[in-house]
Each structure stands twice: as C-alpha cells, then as structure tokens.
Amino acid sequence: MPLSDLFHYEFVQRALLAGVLIAAGSSLLGVFLVLRRLSLIGDGLAHVTFGSVAVVILLGISPAYVTLAVLPLVIVSSVVIMKLTHAQRIHGDAAIGVVSSFGIAAGIILISLSKGYNVDLLSYLFGNILTVTQMELMLSAMVFVLVAASVIWFYPDLFAITFDEELARTMGKKTEIINTVLFILTAIAAVLAMKIAGIMLVSAMLILPPLAAMQLSASFKKTILASLLFSILSVICGMLLAFGLNLPVGGTIVMLNIVLLLVVLGIQKLRAFTR
C-alpha cells in the first residue's frame, strides 16, 4: 500500500493530529523547563505516571479512561516536585528524584499485586500513538490551546522567572502562581506524551526540541518558535518514517529528534570552525 494511502485511515489521521498537538505543547513548555534546569521533570513525571497507571488498572478502570484517570495523581506529583524544589535544603534534581523513585516503587509494588495486568502496563511503557482515542485527541487539542494561551498570556512573567526567579520577584511577579501553572501544564503534557512515546521517552518530548532550538537561537522568542517547529517536524517525519520502515512510531519520533539535535550541533561546530 502506498504510504499516502495510510493517511486516509481515520485512526492514522487522529494519531498524526494528536501527535503534532502533544509534541507542540510539550516543546513550548520544554523551553522553560530546560532553561530552568528542570529537564528531568519529564522523567520524574513519567515514573509517577507509571505508578498512577498501575493504581488505575488495579482499581479496574476501563483502559479507555486511563489517561484521564491518571491526570489528578500526576498533577499532584508535579506540584509536590515544585514544593520540594522550593524547600531550602532540596535541589530541583533531587526533588524530581524523590518523586520519581516513589512513582517507580509504587508501580512495581502495585504490578506485583495486580497479577495478569502486566501486559497493559507494558503498553504504557512503550506507548502507541495509533491507539489515540477521540477523547484523547480532544484532550490533546484542549491542552495545546491551554499551553499556547498560557505561554502567550504569561510570556513576560515566564521569561523573567526563567531568567532569574529572585529577580522576577523583585519585579512584582507572582512567581508561585506562574510556577504552579507551569508545573500543572507539564504534568498534563507528560501524561499525553506517554501516549506518543511511552513512559520511557516522555522526557525526550520535553527536552529534545528545545535543546535543538537553543543551539540555533538568535533570541528567546525565536527559540520558542524553533522548538515548536522541530517538534512538529519530528512527529510528521517520524510517523512517515516509522510507517515506511515498519518501525515503532514513538521510538522513531524520538530518534528523529536526536538526529535533528545532532545535525544542529554539527551546523554550530561548522559555523564556529569557519568563523
């Protein structure tokens, strides 16, 4: 079957659209997270998602509603990371580590209690974008609009806090409110990114496009736009490549992001060499 025919199928269209929306939302948030050295929050939240999926499956909630059901648990965990990060004696990476370990440990214990459900859990570990439901597509669209609107609305505050949180406070910025919004949106994006790339690769969706964009950037706004562009490009090309070569979609999208980063780093090196 020609590759273009695949896109006539409704589930493929849904997957492509959801993939683009989720990747775009994650890449917008990722710029702020990477620059604040919170890159690994995606990993931490993915591990919490793992534990939360185990809880939801153990409770016997239908697989169709798992994404929705894990959201509250992951949002709470994200806020806990934020609170721990601001505790005087805990650094951001350690705070992520605490919540991440808790998520994994809870997941492992719950898996052992729910014998027979391990297969379901494994599907979340590796993700499958082709199983995106209509409800999840709607949720992805809503989250993208929410993320984009928040970034536009709070842009001056987000920029100031990303540059220096203490300095932002002396400018009268409500840093706690902005941080809470950022961490909650990240939690929602992480849960949805699980659907594309799986729990194992959630942080890649948050980190790789911003990182590639930062190498080329000429300004902060251009970095955000480039990050958005890279994420969308990697989902579209990644899906085409995965279908063409019969590879797993999530892994191929992430691998393409890494290739993009390497290309951009190569261009930078070349530029520095020829200067």
Partner: peptide, 24 residues
C-alpha cells in the same frame, strides 16, 4: 542589580534587548 544571575551562562538564548525589556 543582584550579585549573581543564575541564567548568565553561555546557553541562555536571550538578546540584550529582551533582557532589558524583561517582565513586560
């Protein structure tokens, strides 16, 4: 004007103009 700014490393992708106009 603080003593140190955490973001003042080689990787922060903001221009002088963006920083001076920071915070809207």
């Amino acid at each position: 004007l603080p003593q140190r700014i955490a973001a003042l490393d080689h990787h922060f992708p903001a221009t002088v103009e963006e920083i001076v106009l920071m915070g809207g």
